[in-house]
Design a binder for these strands. Sequence first.
DNA 1: CATGAATGAGGTTTCATTCAT
DNA 2: TATGAATGAAACCTCATTCAT
Lengths: 212, 212, 212, 212
Amino acid sequence: MPARAITQIQPRKTPVQARAAVTVGAISEATIQVLLSDGVERLTTTRVAERAGVSVGTLYQYYPNKQSLLFAVLSDHLDKVASAVELACEQARHKPLAEMVRMVVEAFLAAKSERTDISQALYQFAADVGGPALVKRVGQRSRKAWEAVLQTAPDIEVAPDKFAIEIMIAAMAGATRHVLEAGASPAMMRGLRQHLVVLCQSYLRAQLAPSR
Amino acid sequence: MPARAITQIQPRKTPVQARAAVTVGAISEATIQVLLSDGVERLTTTRVAERAGVSVGTLYQYYPNKQSLLFAVLSDHLDKVASAVELACEQARHKPLAEMVRMVVEAFLAAKSERTDISQALYQFAADVGGPALVKRVGQRSRKAWEAVLQTAPDIEVAPDKFAIEIMIAAMAGATRHVLEAGASPAMMRGLRQHLVVLCQSYLRAQLAPSR
Amino acid sequence: MPARAITQIQPRKTPVQARAAVTVGAISEATIQVLLSDGVERLTTTRVAERAGVSVGTLYQYYPNKQSLLFAVLSDHLDKVASAVELACEQARHKPLAEMVRMVVEAFLAAKSERTDISQALYQFAADVGGPALVKRVGQRSRKAWEAVLQTAPDIEVAPDKFAIEIMIAAMAGATRHVLEAGASPAMMRGLRQHLVVLCQSYLRAQLAPSR
Amino acid sequence: MPARAITQIQPRKTPVQARAAVTVGAISEATIQVLLSDGVERLTTTRVAERAGVSVGTLYQYYPNKQSLLFAVLSDHLDKVASAVELACEQARHKPLAEMVRMVVEAFLAAKSERTDISQALYQFAADVGGPALVKRVGQRSRKAWEAVLQTAPDIEVAPDKFAIEIMIAAMAGATRHVLEAGASPAMMRGLRQHLVVLCQSYLRAQLAPSR
DNA sequence: CATGAATGAGGTTTCATTCAT
DNA sequence: TATGAATGAAACCTCATTCAT
């Protein structure tokens, strides 16, 4: 397991003033931009600040170091996706399995698709920093939400175990990543949506009605 | 599309003497080691050379730059996995679908498991370098192999289309990655194996007999 | 024709604050110093920064690379000399040839002599970098100035052609360089001055009244 | 005055065997080639050896270090030119001044022109290494030869002093360098020849019959 | 003698971070 | 608070030179 230096990773101050919020937003957005146009290797705090239209000094007023900046951006995105999944799970309670799966999968993909650029940008360093940890944490949220809805499905007797759900979520994420990295035309995203629905539905059914 | 600097990425010289081959092997292995113990961010050519027990200069005799080193290591690994999949596909020809899928999936996982450390190490930068391109290329090899075996399955009429197979492969990769990044005990790997088999079998069947 | 790597050669930022201007001046001066005490071969950016009393980082804020630093110093010097020649030409208009030549030659030498150390330092790499190109460009300025004055000399009928003037300028530069590299005592510089005046005067006359 | 490290600068062994002579010749030639195609900055011993078709090790059998290699090449060239001048001076004894000057100047230029590429290549580092010292030494040889012939000219009473001759030689060298660096078409070289003859003739006459 | 793999000091350049203004 | 000049550790990479084969 990597023994990386421990660095402060929480944002330095929560913006209370409107101006500050704008600045933080600009920095956040600039980070994505730089990530996409220059790549992680070439992402420097100066470059981000420039693109955001502020000085480096200002950037450091809001983020104690570079890692915390990347961390915040990644965290934001993952939170948004997890929230979308949670909301969908909430709304899909008590629906039949097929419908339920369709709703949650579509919500997941919709959240990812809203800003495909962000997803792609983040893949570049999600494996770094506190990346895996964050991904895991957010993965847990999704898993719990899935577990909860699945309990309410009228047409299945026993819900799949945690491990199976984790695998399913990871499988979805993997397929989505693949398509996004391949270029992700809207048509492909639609295709992906249908296939993911089928994948999850069939997998869950197979889980519940073991192989014969 | 990222506009990263173009760098030469091919190894500089192929070792002809025995001593040189040893050196190259040591450097390759040291790269994995450093990746695992220090992380990509902290992987420096000097550190790799040190760990390999050679001088930096020697490293640069075989790799024109840092990226080419990482690229070579990644490439090696992916090639190994792709070959394992191809071999399994060869051997699984004309078996019934369930058996076929089990064989190939198990071969894939076995290849990944042989050096779980390498797999984990590589996730850290697979998104960088020529990473996605390489992954894509190797993905194609796997997809073609899958396509070919599936044509020979006696118990299905029409083989799934390319896109479906790609999705399946990416899903497998995603799930595998998740488990590896979570710590990957042998028990988990066994669980993963069973689940992946189910996942693929059910997905392929669902593809062929659309749900309505 | 040499196929050297193309490098950015323009200074990176123009100093706007007083402090920055001082810094740039110090770096420029330090470059000369190092050139003289250590030679081109041993001129390193670190050494220049040290001698200038700043950090390497600061040096690189003003010059994108080592070549641009050398280029800037060379350019400065050549511009100064060219300006001196132009000014002298301006002032020598309509004087008799002998007087005219004396004035311009003396102005040239005075400019070179003001900082003989700089002249000597620069010979070391004038052939490198954009050296020859720069020298050519500045040479053109001098040649045009000479051409212009010579047109106004009352005691000659037709002014010498461009090529002849270029040769004359290059001859002067060569002789000056020789003396500077030989050690250049004030006495020698005076001797040089007289000889250069004679050289140019006689050459120009010979040009105009071809020996047969 | 530069305080450069003192390094052994004499070739390591004088080639007595024919094969060795060929090797040395190849290395020498390769040095020029690399100088022209890559520039001094990029001239490395490995590159020279490669171009010469030998291994670095072999190069180091004949030259103790890089400087000695450059030094030898420069020395060779300068010696050749000096010898040509000396020979011409020998043959021009007792000729009238105009004829004498023409002969020597033409011999000088012919020697330089034989391999204009070499001259150009060498300008790049003649100011380095033991460059100026060598140039000075060879300059002395030329000056002495000129002094000697001029003593024999039937149509002048007192020969010009050493300083004047040095200036003349340096002026010739400067003009020649200028033309070579400008591209040196055969036509230009012819023009240069005529102008140099005029330059030297008129200068010498002016020296002898002072300003009126 | 020739080879070329290995060395490692040292050069160039970048960039996260600070702090005086 | 915002700025951006300055810092300097540290990264990447080169290349003169040696020496075992």
